[in-house]
Amino acid sequence: MNIDFKKLLSKFSSKFANALGSRFCIGLDMGLDRLNLVQMEQLAGKMHIRAIASIAYPCSREELQANPKILKTLLKQAYATQPFRGKCVVSCLPIDQIKIITITYKHTEGQDDAVAVVAELRERYKSELDNLVVDFMSLRQEEAGSNHRDALVALAPREKVVAYLDLLTSAGLSVNALDIGPAALARLVSHTGAIHVPEYPKLPNVLLINFGSDSSFLTIIWGRRLMLDRPVEFSENRMFNRLKHTLDMPEELMIRLLYENNTNAEKTNGKNVNAKSANNSTDEINQMVTEVLRPEINALLQEVNKTLVYMASKTRGKSVGQIYLTGRVAGYPGILNYLREQLHVAVDILDPVEVFAAEKYKLSSHSIGAMPGIALTTGLALRGIPEHG
């Protein structure tokens, strides 16, 4: 799967101190405004989350990337509050430093796929390719007999990759691997299926909708293999902007209305205060918010349907058997319920904390699984771990 990352990693990796550290590396995601960390462990033959943290930056991400001391301070904070063990990490480049594309390349019997992928990229990027680090993974093919294959390719400027590796190692970490985001998410879905799907080891075909602050992604996992990953313009910030421009609503109120449970009326001294009136008022506000956001949700639905139609055309009419939602927007009932009403497929929230929660250690927040980047980080932490431990 690697063309160049392994050579770079060999310069920055060190021997692991113990068996646990080498097997259960820490997933590390440097998000837009938070550092996300997840580490797994095995308890009674099952995989659980050993430690998890999502820590807000004290500065801009650009400043953090330029100063390993700030990253070291954040890591120290995470280790003080959660039982992280070892310094071995699996990470991925920040999304603004990497370009992920899908290409079709010609497969020749007996030829290494990496050679064919590089040949196709050379046609596109010419000499520019010499300054890029390339990683790729072949996508599942449903059309038999074709000599053309699809691959998901990650491209990043060499200096950006070296700078990121240097940042991590300067903060005292040992880098086991740099992963591709969609591959990490596919891994998370497969592990979730291994836990919840009665037909395991057969797994359903899944559409994962990964909601982000600035953009969202639709990822198709066909059994265990990644088949498609595409961005869509729908995002949390688009929802916030529509509410702000239409209702002049402050962000704190948006968050409370979208994500907090408003089913209970206010209580004072243990007694209901105007319970019926409060519930009616909440219902009216929620209905108004839903109507304002309807155009955004409809646009998302159109993208989902477009993706499902495309997959049916590629798989001779087959479709997904499960849709998962992850990210903070997944906690907004207006989207979850609407997708359930409009799509003839099971739609559920994929919360890594709920999937892999262990009672042995207290998690830092009951809602941390919905934080942006936690699903990706959990997938990073699962790299190299078998689905059944």
Score class of each variant (00 low, 15 high):
residue 328 R to V: 03
residue 212 G to Y: 03
residue 280 N to Y: 08
residue 191 H to T: 11
residue 162 V to Q: 02
residue 388 H to R: 14
residue 122 R to Q: 11
residue 224 R to A: 08
residue 11 K to V: 10
residue 246 T to M: 10
residue 277 S to I: 07
residue 385 I to C: 05
residue 19 A to L: 13
residue 168 L to I: 13
residue 105 Y to M: 05
residue 10 S to I: 05
residue 260 E to P: 07
residue 236 E to G: 12
residue 81 T to A: 13
residue 278 A to D: 14
residue 304 V to W: 08
residue 22 S to L: 06
residue 300 L to N: 13
residue 196 H to C: 09
residue 102 T to C: 05
residue 297 I to Q: 01
residue 32 L to F: 09
residue 224 R to G: 12
residue 55 I to Y: 11
residue 143 E to Q: 14
residue 13 S to D: 11
residue 225 R to M: 06
residue 330 A to I: 04
residue 42 Q to S: 15
residue 226 L to C: 12
residue 195 I to A: 13
residue 320 V to W: 04
residue 368 I to A: 01
residue 316 R to K: 13
residue 117 V to L: 05
residue 70 I to H: 00
residue 379 G to S: 06
residue 266 E to Y: 15
residue 324 Y to K: 03
residue 3 I to Y: 04
residue 221 I to S: 06
residue 28 L to I: 13
residue 108 T to K: 13
residue 137 M to K: 08
residue 370 A to Y: 15
residue 309 V to A: 08
residue 372 P to D: 14
residue 16 F to V: 00
residue 266 E to W: 10
residue 38 V to A: 11
residue 85 R to T: 08
residue 298 N to S: 11
residue 54 S to K: 07
residue 216 S to Q: 03
residue 261 N to M: 02
residue 272 N to F: 11
residue 274 N to K: 07
residue 147 N to S: 03
residue 72 K to D: 01
residue 43 L to V: 14
residue 104 T to D: 10
residue 17 A to W: 02
residue 18 N to D: 15
residue 195 I to G: 07
residue 380 L to F: 09
residue 267 K to I: 08
residue 136 F to C: 02
residue 142 E to D: 01
residue 88 C to D: 13
residue 262 N to R: 15
residue 319 S to P: 01
residue 306 K to D: 03
residue 69 K to W: 03
residue 148 H to T: 06
residue 321 G to Y: 04
residue 309 V to K: 07
residue 43 L to A: 06
residue 90 V to L: 05
residue 114 A to Y: 06
residue 220 I to V: 15
residue 361 Y to T: 10
residue 171 A to P: 08
residue 374 I to Y: 02
residue 372 P to N: 15
residue 17 A to E: 14
residue 64 L to H: 04
residue 327 G to D: 12
residue 236 E to W: 00
residue 80 A to M: 07
residue 261 N to I: 07
residue 278 A to S: 15
residue 202 K to Y: 12
residue 174 S to M: 10
residue 306 K to T: 04
residue 26 I to E: 03
residue 387 E to Q: 14
residue 61 R to F: 08
residue 231 P to Q: 14
residue 96 D to C: 02
residue 255 I to R: 14
residue 65 Q to I: 05
residue 385 I to M: 11
residue 166 D to Q: 10
residue 300 L to F: 11
residue 223 G to V: 01
residue 185 L to V: 14
residue 262 N to S: 04
residue 310 Y to P: 00
residue 308 L to C: 04
residue 203 L to K: 12
residue 154 A to I: 09
residue 386 P to Q: 06
residue 88 C to P: 01
residue 161 V to N: 00
residue 11 K to L: 13
residue 180 I to Q: 08
residue 94 P to R: 03
residue 24 F to H: 13
residue 326 T to I: 03
residue 188 L to C: 12
residue 379 G to C: 05
residue 43 L to E: 15
residue 198 P to G: 05
residue 262 N to K: 14
residue 377 T to R: 01
residue 76 K to N: 11
residue 341 E to L: 13
residue 231 P to L: 04
residue 274 N to H: 12
residue 250 P to I: 03
residue 334 G to H: 09
residue 320 V to D: 04
residue 298 N to C: 03
residue 373 G to H: 07
residue 55 I to E: 05
residue 45 G to P: 05
